[in-house]
Nucleic acid binder design. Structure first.
Lengths: 376, 376
DNA sequence: CTGTTAGCGCATTCAT
DNA sequence: ATGAATGCGCTAACAG
């Protein structure tokens, strides 16, 4: 060790500094809060020295207790396993850093109960606001924060009955973009594969938009304001659309249930096997994954079943652009994840500072990245 | 909205509860701290009711201020972009949850200056301990915490001059495992590709172990206790080993420097092009990536250069098992990331609770996952 | 068993 | 321009 170990290196307090500088605590406090104009240069110098000598660092907890704000915000994540989450997190981190906020990260790991507990814990730390990538849909879950008067901004999905700022992908436009791309490239049998979506607004919107395009009525419109809920199909169910003979299906893939996944994949296999000659583009099925986890699950399965050359048999397009998409040549719609995180913090910051406008929705556009997978 | 918006929903304090329950603050405090045996059932019931009625939640900040501990720990991450980091984070989250700790996540984003700032910020929040996946190697950087008497546990890499608990992969064993696997499968021209390693102990150890195996002296030993530092080769440099005519090279890939990456890759291309007939296994070059980011960089480049069938020309083995490894059939050595994170928190918790034993190293074994890439 | 008192480290009146 | 006093919400002696 290069430093002499000290006995009980109790951190210096404002009182210590005051004594060391031969002055009162008030002046130290003033110095800390940048009220320089009210301090004689002489005193100021002494304080500076004392602080340095004692390696003093003001206790944020105490400050927070006193002034009622501690610069802490909560960030509740549904699933760290999803690359999307991590990317958003980076934007959040950056924004926090820029705005002088400190994020408390909580990982609900897909368990609603955890989500509830963490929310409660966060209020206990008196965070000034919370960014939530919600798992549960019930406003009830958000009660601890929502009604507690502490600002909330939602990311990616909304929660019924809760009106707050939210920022995320323009799901409608993204799904349309993807569906159109597939249609334009001659695919006439398209499967939209998505996790159970009754509970998640973003999935709902994507599925609905896909279905609309497939049924030929796909307008170019943006998402509606608070986005009406829509009854989703049950697992394994699928509806057929029609745009000049093209077929569109929705396949639900419940990643949390191994058995269900296998059932759904079997259904898919059946369709693929029946899709006839792989060289006929018109006969090549296209899969439209609603997000990266789904896309990965599909890719892994297809590779296992059809070998390394699986893409010759099936085309894959994914919302989300995971790092392996480029590597495997899978077409993707990249979400502006970093910006989503950044904006979320900005919104929250404004609320914390007292902005009172009505709830805002910030819908950011996705970017289509065409790769070999969806080209003939 | 389903709830009636309240004016200034100022959170209830212990005083409010005391008044509501018609008792003193002390009893409330006792109740909060589970000292039930000292409370008459009657009073206890009244308190319970009052708390429920007021939706009271004790202020952690205030508690922390008083008792000197706030259950907060810091988690400093070098790079969230690395899947390794995220996986470790999950273990950390889980352990914290189990031990009643709250992690403050900080992302240094590969900037040493950020690392320093965050460390300082963390002490400001009076975290009880810190888990560090260090960027900088200087003990100096860790000064704010290391010498401040607050416990630190290192993850993945150590910091010279700083003796503390550390947990990570058994790098020596892992590198040996990988090198041996390649040797056993008949590869005789192996390139160990690694980011600049002068600064990072884990990379150093991996490279050194690789080199030893290639030079035929690779013992089966574990890493030495505090692991002696070793002078690393400069960018682009490579040494040749010899074990019955096999050649081992070390290639440095500085991912942070685009130009340097291109130079290094060019060198690699040259070697591959010169490696002769792709069908002769003995002539097929094997790449041993020191971690996932390197592996991804290599894979992307090779695919761009040699097409989708690049693996016919080059074998790839990676330490770290990113999600795309299975998909592309790349052999990997999986780190017990979750456990690393979990153990780190356990160590830290023990230190926080006052354990005084000398610094411990926890070296966890990697698991070789053989895939098509490294088989003939 | 229960309440009173005295701070934890700091920011803020209010005097000086 | 500076300092003394008060209290944020809570815990920990110390009495009753």
């Amino acid at each position: 060790m290069s430093t002499t170990p000290q006995a009980t290196p109790r951190r210096a307090t404002i009182t210590d500094v005051a004594r060391e500088a031969g002055t009162g605590k008030t002046s130290i406090s003033r110095y800390l809060n940048g009220e320089m104009s009210v301090l004689s240069p002489e005193l100021r110098a002494r304080i500076e020295a004392a602080i340095a000598r004692l390696d003093y660092q003001p206790n944020q907890m105490a400050r927070g207790l006193k002034r009622g704000r501690n610069r802490l915000i909560g960030m509740l994540l549904a699933d760290l396993t999803n690359p999307y989450t991590v990317e958003v997190l980076q934007g959040v981190e950056a924004a926090c850093h820029a705005l002088g906020l400190m994020p408390l990260i909580c990982h609900a790991a897909n368990e609603v109960e955890m989500e509830r507990r963490y929310l409660q814990l966060l209020t206990t730390y008196r965070v000034e606001g919370v960014i939530v990538n919600a798992l549960g849909v019930r406003e009830e879950t958000l009660r601890p924060v929502g009604s507690g008067g502490i600002p909330v901004v939602l990311v990616d999905r909304m929660v019924d009955g809760l009106v707050t700022d939210m920022v995320g992908l323009d799901n409608r436009a993204a799904a349309e973009l993807g569906a159109r791309h597939l249609l334009d490239n001659g695919f006439d049998d398209i499967w939209f594969v998505v996790q159970p979506f009754e509970q998640v607004s973003s999935r709902q919107l994507r599925e609905a938009a896909f279905r609309e395009v497939m049924s030929g009525q796909g307008g170019k419109g943006h998402e509606g304001g608070t986005g009406g809920k829509r009854e989703g199909g049950r697992a394994g169910s699928n509806r057929d659309g029609s745009e000049g003979g093209v077929r569109g299906h929705t396949l639900v893939l419940n990643l949390g249930d191994q058995a269900a996944v296998e059932r759904a994949l079997a259904e898919l296999d059946h369709a693929i096997d029946a899709s006839g000659n792989p060289t006929r583009t018109a006969g090549r099925i296209a899969l439209f994954a609603a997000n990266a986890p789904v896309a990965l699950c599909l890719a892994l399965h297809l590779k296992a079943r059809y070998g390394a050359d699986w893409q010759a048999r099936v085309a894959l397009l994914s919302i989300d652009d995971p790092e392996w998409a480029e590597l495997t040549g899978v077409t993707a719609i990249r979400q502006p994840t970093y910006e989503i995180g950044y904006r979320a913090v900005e919104f929250l910051h404004e609320r914390i500072e007292g902005v009172q406008t009505t709830a805002r929705d910030c819908l950011l556009p996705g970017e289509l990245i065409v790769r070999a997978s969806t080209l003939r």
